[in-house]
């Protein structure tokens, strides 16, 4: 029963300090008063209403919450919101531009690279970063470096096809 006792101690501790954090998401700054333990994922979803970033495990194992921090992909469930202060946070809501969808989004639609669609925002955020990382050179490379993003519907071959297509058209600069 010692673990229960220690858990009770945790519960009876005073509330964790809150403070105001400024998060810059998709180019827009937001000031939020939050518990310092809030993850970036919960801050995006619950505080900012940006629910395109998905929670599939909350344990860093599925990739559904992939976002970009300064252009690099990170798992928002394993990142504290406080760690993202002062950095550029990009989510699925922020990658299209005024002209239309991002080439990777377009390629995902053309190649039917999703089914239920739940993992799709994370897949697309990983795919965009993958191309920027120069990791989309071959199908084998795409498969390997997309393996942190689980898709239970099993759309993997179409995800590979979509990324191959988008990469061959010049990545971000291409308009399909």
């Amino acid at each position: 029963m010692t673990d229960v006792a220690s858990r009770r101690d945790v519960g009876e501790r005073p509330a964790a300090p809150e403070r105001i954090m400024t998060l810059t998401v998709n180019g827009r700054p937001y000031a939020l008063r939050m518990d310092t333990r809030v993850t970036l994922l919960d801050a995006l979803r619950d505080r900012l209403g940006l629910v395109g970033t998905k929670k599939g495990c909350d344990q860093g194992a599925c990739g559904a919450c992939t976002v970009h921090l300064d252009g690099r992909r990170v798992l928002a469930c394993l990142t504290l919101a406080a760690q993202a202060e002062g950095r550029a946070i990009t989510t699925i809501e922020g990658i299209a531009d005024a002209d239309g969808p991002h080439p990777v989004q377009q390629a995902f639609m053309e190649h039917d690279a999703f089914q239920c669609g739940f993992c799709t925002p994370g897949q697309i955020m990983s795919a965009v970063a993958l191309m920027a990382e120069g990791r989309a050179g071959s199908d084998e490379e795409i498969r390997e470096f997309m393996s942190g993003n689980l898709c239970r519907c099993g759309a993997y071959p179409n995800i590979v096809a979509a990324i191959r297509d988008a990469a061959s058209r010049g990545g971000h600069d291409a308009r399909l």
């Binding site: 699925i92 989004q105 995902f108 669609g117 799709t120």
Partner: peptide
Amino acid sequence: AGVNRVDGPRKVTGTAPYPMDFS
């Protein structure tokens, strides 16, 4: 015909609302 999914635009932009997304 293998037309693209009509719900594709919502799914690739993160705007398709799943049960956990409602408040």
